[in-house]
C-alpha cells in the first residue's frame, strides 16, 4: 500500500498552515482513512498544540531521523480517532539537523503504513521548506487574500514547480465575503488569475478557528461551523470526491470557476 504524501505550505507565516493540516488530517481520519500528520517545523512546533496533544510528546521527528527511537514510538495517537496520529517536531533542535534525503526516506516508510501523510511545512523557503517538500507528491499552498501572502505563495509555487512537484492545489484562507463585496479585499477570482493553480477550497474568516485552536480541538469535530464545513469539503476534494463550490458571495463567478477547474 502506498499512501499519498501531501505537504501544506505557504511561504508567509501565520496564514493557517497548521490549522489546515489539523483539520484536513482529522477530516480524512473521520472518513476512516489512516492518517499521519508530520510536523516539519523544527524549532517552532505547534501542530501538537492545535491538536491538543502537547502533553503526550515523548519522542519527536529528529529522534526518529537520528535513530534514537523507532518511528512508531514517536507517533502520538489522537484522543478521539484511533486511525489518526502525528509525529511532533523537535522544539529544542534546529532545522539543519534534518536533511531532505532523510525526510524522503521517512515519508516513504510512512507511506507503507498510512493512506495519507500530511506534512506541516515551516514558513519561509529555507532548509525547513526543502526538508518538508522533499518527500511529498502533492502540495497544498495556503494563502490569505492579502498581497503579501499571495506574493509569497506565488514564489513558493515557483519553487515547488522547480523541484518538479506538479500536483499543486490552493486553499484561500480567511476570506471575508463582506469585504470582497465592498471591494476592500481581493476576490477568489483575482487570486486564481494570478496564481493559476487549481482551487481546493475557500475558508471563510471566522472566530471559531481561534477558539478551536486554543481548545486544541479541530473545527471539523464541531457541527454547524462554516469554516469547519469548508475544511470538510476541502478534505473531500483532496480525496477525489466531487464537491460543488458553494456560491457564498452571491454572484455567479464560483460556478464558472468550478467549471474551469474541474474541466
Amino acid at each position: 500500500m502506498a499512501g499519498k504524501t501531501i505537504v501544506v505550505t505557504s511561504g508567509k507565516g501565520g496564514v493557517g498552515k497548521t490549522t489546515t493540516v489539523a483539520n484536513i488530517g482529522t477530516m480524512l481520519a473521520k472518513k476512516k482513512y489512516s492518517v499521519c500528520m508530520l510536523d516539519a517545523d523544527i524549532g517552532l512546533r505547534n501542530l501538537d498544540v492545535v491538536m491538543g496533544l502537547e502533553n503526550r510528546i515523548v519522542y519527536n521527528l529528529v529522534d526518529v531521523i537520528e535513530g534514537h527511537c523507532r518511528t512508531a514510538q514517536a507517533m502520538i495517537r489522537d484522543r478521539k480517532l484511533s486511525n489518526l496520529c502525528m509525529i511532533p517536531a523537535a522544539q529544542t533542535r534546529e532545522k539543519n539537523s534534518v536533511q531532505p534525503e532523510q525526510m524522503k526516506t521517512l515519508c516513504a516508510e510512512l507511506a507503507e503504513e498510512f493512506d495519507y501523510i500530511i506534512i506541516d511545512c515551516p514558513a519561509g523557503i529555507e532548509q525547513g521548506f526543502k526538508n518538508a517538500v522533499a518527500g511529498a507528491q502533492t502540495a497544498i499552498v495556503v494563502t490569505t487574500p492579502e498581497v503579501s501572502a499571495i506574493r509569497d505563495a506565488d514564489r513558493v509555487i515557483g519553487l515547488l514547480e522547480a523541484s518538479l512537484l506538479r500536483d499543486i492545489h490552493l486553499i484561500i484562507n480567511r476570506l471575508n465575503h463582506r469585504m470582497v463585496k465592498k471591494g476592500d479585499m481581493m476576490s477568489t477570482a483575482d487570486i486564481l488569475s494570478l496564481l493559476a493553480v487549481p482551487l481546493l477550497g475557500v475558508v471563510p474568516e471566522s472566530e471559531e478557528v481561534v477558539i478551536s485552536t486554543n481548545r486544541g480541538v479541530p473545527l471539523v469535530h464541531q457541527r454547524g461551523s462554516r469554516a469547519g464545513r469548508a475544511f470538510t469539503q476541502i478534505a473531500a476534494r483532496l480525496n477525489g470526491e466531487e464537491v460543488p463550490f458553494e456560491d457564498e458571495s452571491g454572484n455567479g463567478f464560483l460556478g464558472k470557476m468550478k467549471r474551469f477547474i474541474w474541466s
Partner: peptide
Amino acid sequence: RSTCRSGTRIESPADCVVLGDVNPG
C-alpha cells in the same frame, strides 16, 4: 514557456518571449 512567478529572474541576450504571465516579484 511558463509563467514567471515571484523570485524568477530571466535575462536574455536578445529578445525575450514569455508564454505565460509575469507575476509581481
